Simulated scan of single mutants.
Amino acid sequence: MVKLSCKHCLTANWRSSVALALAVTLISPLAARAEEPDARKLVKAMSDYLSAQKAISFAYDTNFEIVTTEHQKLLLASSGKVEMGRPDKLRVTRTGGFADVEMTFDGKTATVLGKHLNLYTQADLPGTIDHLVDEMRDKLHRPVPGADLLLPNVYDELMRDVVDIKDLGSGVIGGVECDHLAFRTKELDWQLWIAQGEKPYPCRYVITATQVDLGPQYSIQISDWKTGTDVVAEDYSFKNTTDAKKVELEKLVDIDELPDRFAKGDSK
């Protein structure tokens, strides 16, 4: 007979409790059913509030899950800051375990600086922030963190293809009470926590890839939310203060949340 130490007993009891809680969650109906019109109103109010802001800044933390070929989930974490001046100014920083990156946009030129490499690349992308987001994603394959929340038509972008909506009541994110909503499309599940009150900004945004093996998630949590005169106006043009070397985009390796050393496999 094998005896468990107190530490192992606690671990076993904790696992049993979690398993029981998950089982109850899976078989029990939700106490509060979805009220789709009210949920849509909350998202629309958030969208209207965001689009009305001429200047926004916030800090963020992301968690990016990946699934190995051995069916092990790994979590890559990073933090950063977003500063935005509508319609065409943006600065985004992101620091993680593999990269330290800054992207600036002055309305004409987008610059991506790999601080850990002291290398940068530039692309002429004149236009608005929403044009920049599309170009960074589709042509440069460098998506902007939380891009869905930066566009002027947030409601239309988020609600496109939604087939199911649930209002899960309240939740607290970083000490801020939020309305917690869950949505489903044919390919993705996503959840949104929106701050209650006069400033309905997004506090947390979670996307679950339901069509990928084990359903990995990507989440972004927002803090230190500022708008209007609370955002210090800055020059959004690139300043090469470290004498970084300019290179072509393909030479700027290991700057994404998923490092190049992780080989991508097939989805299942």
Rank of each mutant, 00 (worst) to 15 (best):
Y60Q: 01
R204L: 03
V247K: 00
L90Q: 07
R91M: 15
Q72C: 09
E65D: 15
M1G: 14
Q221T: 15
M136G: 04
E135F: 13
K246C: 06
V24G: 00
A12S: 13
V92G: 00
D164P: 05
R40G: 08
S28F: 06
V231Y: 04
D100L: 04
D88V: 02
C203Y: 00
P202W: 07
K186L: 04
N118I: 10
Y60V: 01
K89V: 08
L42K: 15
G127E: 07
V247S: 05
V162H: 03
T210C: 01
F98R: 12
E135G: 09
D230Q: 14
V92L: 03
R137A: 15
T69S: 09
R15L: 14
F262E: 14
D230L: 13
A12Y: 13
L50H: 12
L30P: 03
D148H: 13
L168A: 12
D138P: 02
E257Y: 10
L149N: 06
G127P: 01
N63L: 11
T62S: 07
T68Y: 06
K81T: 12
F58T: 11
R15A: 13
E70K: 10
L113W: 14
F238V: 02
T128H: 02
E65G: 11
E157P: 04
D134H: 11
S47V: 09
I222H: 00
M46L: 12
K3H: 09
T11A: 15
N13Q: 12
R94T: 06
V253K: 15
A31H: 04
I194D: 03
P126F: 05
F105V: 00
A195N: 02
T62V: 14
Y120C: 01
H8A: 15
A55P: 11
P126M: 03
H180R: 09
A110S: 00
K166S: 13
L151D: 12
H71F: 05
T93V: 01
T185P: 05
L20C: 07
M84S: 03
S170V: 06
Q211P: 02
L151S: 15
F262D: 10
A195W: 01
H71M: 09
F262H: 12
K251N: 12
P259G: 05
K139P: 10
G265L: 02
E177V: 04
A31P: 02
V163N: 07
L30H: 09
L113R: 06
V206Y: 01
V18A: 10
V231K: 01
K186D: 09
G197M: 02
W225L: 01
A34Q: 08
T68W: 04
A233Y: 06
S219Q: 09
P126W: 00
R160K: 13
A123E: 13
K264N: 10
I222R: 01
Q196M: 09
V176P: 01
E177P: 03
I255G: 05
L258F: 09
A39R: 11
D224R: 07
L42I: 13
D161C: 00
D156C: 09
L252C: 06
W190I: 08
K81Q: 13
Y201T: 04
V101N: 03
V18K: 03
E83L: 13
